[in-house]
């Protein structure tokens, strides 16, 4: 293809071609086709939109929050919704709830990102190693997984936080420690179906070792179902973090963590309902957004659909 012809080709045509000319283009085509099928899912796009907004809010928190989230104004406490200068009112110490929500989004994203980095990776590692190696290693790793699975998540997290001390980092660690077993189970189940397939046999016949087979051939097929599971679990993770905050074992005052805000508002819930309700609604919205996104991702990523 000559240079001028290449320039005439639009970006869209370049992305939709059936005959990619380079590795880079092939990858871009696969990504773009995934995006096209994802973007037809209205609810998933809605979820993605909310999460992008959340990300932007967290990023520009100092610019968009009307007040300092920590500034107390006791003469102005428990103001109702739409009061002067405080759209969502103020809490028991006269702090602006909207500003606290905006700063709280940073904490929520921080927890979600850390847990999403730790738990699925640990689960993937344990599950694929157990599933591929089989034998006694499989038995040992899976029984450990079973032990973790047998505890209720919040109770185990509580025990960890109690042992490690209260705080947001320990809450993240505790939630991660309780969140990885389901990922290990999924990864192992996927590995068991993949390990005896012909394409794994074929790469074995090229002399590939176990490490290469697990990391380059099994992981790419497990990751899509894990991503879906992570996005569906995000709601649970946010709720667990909020639950720990609510019980006073997660983020500590005066940190504007949403669960801790509900906990503080609980004392006034009958007379000043918005103090607890507004952060509750924020948790609800973000959890819903993650669930919708997860649902849409499942449609795009599920390899059994025969898609990309």
């Amino acid at each position: 293809m000559s240079q001028s012809e290449a320039q005439k080709q639009t970006l869209r045509e370049w992305l939709l071609t059936d005959t990619p000319q380079s590795r880079h283009q092939a990858r871009m085509v696969a990504l773009y086709q995934g995006w096209l099928s994802f973007s037809t899912n209205t609810m998933a796009m809605f979820g993605l939109g909310i999460l992008i907004c959340l990300g932007l809010v967290a990023l520009f928190a100092p610019l968009i929050s009307p007040h300092d989230p920590f500034a107390q104004e006791l003469g102005n406490r428990l103001q109702p919704l739409w009061s002067e200068g405080h759209v969502f009112g103020t809490d028991s110490l006269g702090r602006d709830i909207l500003s606290r929500l905006i700063y709280g989004s940073r904490i929520t994203l921080y927890i979600v990102a850390l847990v999403a980095l730790i738990a699925p990776v640990a689960g993937l590692l344990v599950g694929t190693v157990a599933g591929y190696s089989g034998g006694w290693l499989d038995v040992i790793l899976m029984r450990i997984t079973d032990i973790f699975l047998a505890f209720p998540r919040l109770v185990l997290a509580l025990a960890f936080v109690a042992a490690l001390g209260a705080g947001i980092e320990n809450a993240v660690l505790a939630i991660s420690l309780t969140a990885w077993p389901p990922y290990a189970r999924i990864a192992r189940a996927e590995t068991l179906t993949i390990r005896n397939s012909d394409y794994i046999s074929a790469v074995k016949l090229q002399g590939a070792g176990a490490t290469r087979i697990v990391t380059k051939h099994i992981w790419p097929l497990c990751i899509s179902s894990l991503i879906v599971r992570v996005t569906l679990d995000m709601a649970g993770i946010i709720l667990a973090a909020a639950g720990l905050g609510f019980l006073g074992l997660g983020a500590q005052p005066p940190s504007p963590e949403w669960g801790a805000m509900i906990s503080e508002g609980r004392r006034f819930i009958l007379d000043h309902w918005w103090v607890a309700t507004i952060p509750g609604l924020a948790i609800f919205t973000v959890s819903l957004a993650f669930n919708l996104l997860g649902d849409g991702l499942r449609d795009v990523l599920d390899p059994k659909d025969g898609g990309s």
């Binding site: 012909d198 394409y199 046999s201 074929a202 790419p220």
Partner: peptide, 11 residues
């Protein structure tokens, strides 16, 4: 292998 639908890695 017998089945070319199963002997190539889908990704």
């Amino acid at each position: 292998f017998q089945d070319p639908y199963a002997s190539l890695h889908p990704r």
